[in-house]
Design a protein around this nucleic acid. Structure first.
Length: 474
RNA sequence: GCUCCCUUCGUCUAGCGGUUAGGACGUCGCCCUCUCAAGGCUGAAACAGGGGUUCAAUUCCCCUAGGGAGCGCCA
């Protein structure tokens, strides 16, 4: 049976792929992969007003970047409107639905009245049993489901457990709008059914919709798929995730220098766990993923943990791979075009050589870019204020003497320059640090950098001596 | 207001009646050290509150409080 699993990710294209959607997609993807099934992608664009092409593009792009591929063609829900209409009509013919001629004013009044009386059943069934002959002129009717008035509707949710609603709290939802277009509620049910979806995994903001959809499934005589409603992701302060926090599109995470693998790992552990394991390769994630491991409470988004994970993935990435990522991310961050122009075979080789040292200190690709600054810097170096403070007359003189000491070094490697420097320090009765810091400033313009011997080796003899010369009194 | 969901260190979480309540991030201190990281070792840090059930509750039930979601001819 494991080969029959079909999951789906069904975003509405009204904005970018946000972090919560990304996690939902990931969970669906993992579940399908784990069971050798398929994950379908359906764009819920029945709201013609708010659906946009750029949003669709952003969603597809975001999923590709995250490495979440889907099976088959993307299904655009709006193209299936005819089928949705057909199903609504069949329900009408079967007496399981009816036309409702209520005006929006009447509806508003009903809602206010219901709320005032503390009821949840907002639509009072005004046209449920009324003769359509009484229909007013000029009103395009909606088609509403004739939902059960009593009894209960039960969802056996794989995450939330058994959730029960009293039917008197559920009203007759609209299946078809006055303009003949389907509502989300109808479209989802029909599409999931027609697409053969076996497992619905989505945010728990849909939990109540599951009950309403169950009523549609029942009216149609269809089986409802397995339901899993996963808790939402909140901002660091526990409130709803806003743009201020992490409700950024996944493209923003790319621009921030996060690796897809790191984001996947962070996301999978947000709301799901597998014992004490924190780091998961994609393979391990697929093998370990299960619905039982999903928690029921909302999780807060924590950038610090994401950064830590990202650092881990950077440290463990291949050097050549990182050079490629370094270049690729430049296209997604502002003000890096000058850096891009400086990429050539020489600087690429330097970058590759420096990578073992660079990646040890970077939590994001942005930090990686920043710490590689010394490779691309033009002479004379721009010196940070904090670093400039170290360029005292004494230290400048020291740099001059050091330059002289390094000049004869050959070949020029991290090992040989280190030996020369240690000898220089010993001879002067200085601690290595007393020499290394001024040297670092002269070479990088900063007080922090990769190991100074790595910097020496990467920059090469000529460039190093020139930079030292720049800081030596004439 | 109504319906539904949730509640273990600051954060993500393990726990599925009996544990010194574990791990991870962050944080504190120490070690390493040419800076910054990384790494190693330590420390502080949690079962929301109240009732039950039970020989025994973080674990099961109820209530309260707090948080969240939903209440559209949006999805």
């Amino acid at each position: 049976m494991t080969d029959s699993v079909v999951t789906r990710f069904a975003p509405s294209p009204t904005g970018f792929l946000h972090i919560g959607g990304a996690r939902t997609a990931l969970f669906n993807w993992l579940y399908a992969k784990k069971h050798g099934g398929r994950m379908l992608l359906r764009i819920e664009d029945t709201d013609r007003e708010r659906s946009t092409e750029p949003a669709i593009a952003a969603i597809l792009d975001g999923m590709k970047w995250l490495g979440l591929d889907w099976d088959g063609d993307v299904v655009y829900q709006f193209t299936r409107a005819g089928r949705h209409r057909e199903v609504a009509e069949s329900l009408l013919a079967a007496g399981k639905a009816y036309r409702c001629y209520a005006t929006s004013e009447e509806l508003t009044a009903m809602r206010e009245k219901a709320r005032a009386e503390g009821r949840t059943r907002l639509y009072d069934g005004l046209w449920r049993d009324r003769d359509p002959k009484q229909a007013p002129e000029g009103i395009k009717p909606t088609i509403r489901l004739k939902a059960p008035l009593s009894g209960e509707t039960v969802i056996e949710d794989q995450v939330q457990g058994r959730v029960v609603w009293q039917n008197e709290n559920l009203d007759d939802l609209v299946l078809l709008r006055g303009d003949g277009n389907p509502t989300y509620m109808l479209a989802v049910v029909v599409d999931d059914h027609d697409m053969g979806v076996t497992h619905v995994i989505r945010g728990d903001d849909h939990l109540i919709n599951a009950a309403r959809q169950k009523q549609i499934y029942d009216a149609l005589g269809w089986d409802i798929p397995s339901m899993s409603h996963i808790p939402l992701i909140h901002g660091p302060d526990g409130s709803k995730l806003s743009k201020r926090h992490g409700a950024l599109g996944v493209d923003a995470y790319r621009s921030l220098g996060y690796l897809p693998a790191a984001l996947r790992n962070y996301l999978v552990r947000l709301g799901w766990s597998h014992g004490d394991q924190e780091i998961f390769s994609t393979r391990e994630m697929i093998d370990a993923f299960d619905l039982q491991g999903i928690g029921r409470s909302a999780a807060r988004f924590d950038f610090a943990k994401l950064e830590n994970l990202n650092g881990h993935y950077i440290r463990h990435a291949g050097d050549a791979e990182l050079v490629t990522m370094f270049e690729d991310v430049l296209d997604h961050v502002p003000d890096r075009s000058s850096l891009k122009a400086k990429l050539n075979d020489t600087t690429r080789a330097q970058l590759l050589q420096a990578m073992p040292s660079l990646k040890e200190r970077a939590k994001t690709l942005i930090e990686l870019i920043d710490s590689a600054y010394f490779i691309f810097a033009d002479r004379p170096l721009e010196v940070e204020p904090k670093a400039a403070a170290l360029l005292t007359p004494e230290n400048r003189a020291l740099i001059g003497r050091l330059k002289a000491a390094l000049e004869p070094v050959s070949p020029w490697t991290a090992e040989t320059t280190e030996a020369a420097m240690r000898a220089f320090a010993d001879a002067g009765g200085l601690k290595l640090g007393a020499v290394a810091q001024p040297l670092r400033v002269a070479l990088t313009g900063r007080t922090t950098s990769p190991g100074i011997f790595d910097v020496l080796a990467v920059l090469g003899r000529e460039e190093c001596l020139a930079r030292l010369g720049d800081q030596t009194p004439a």
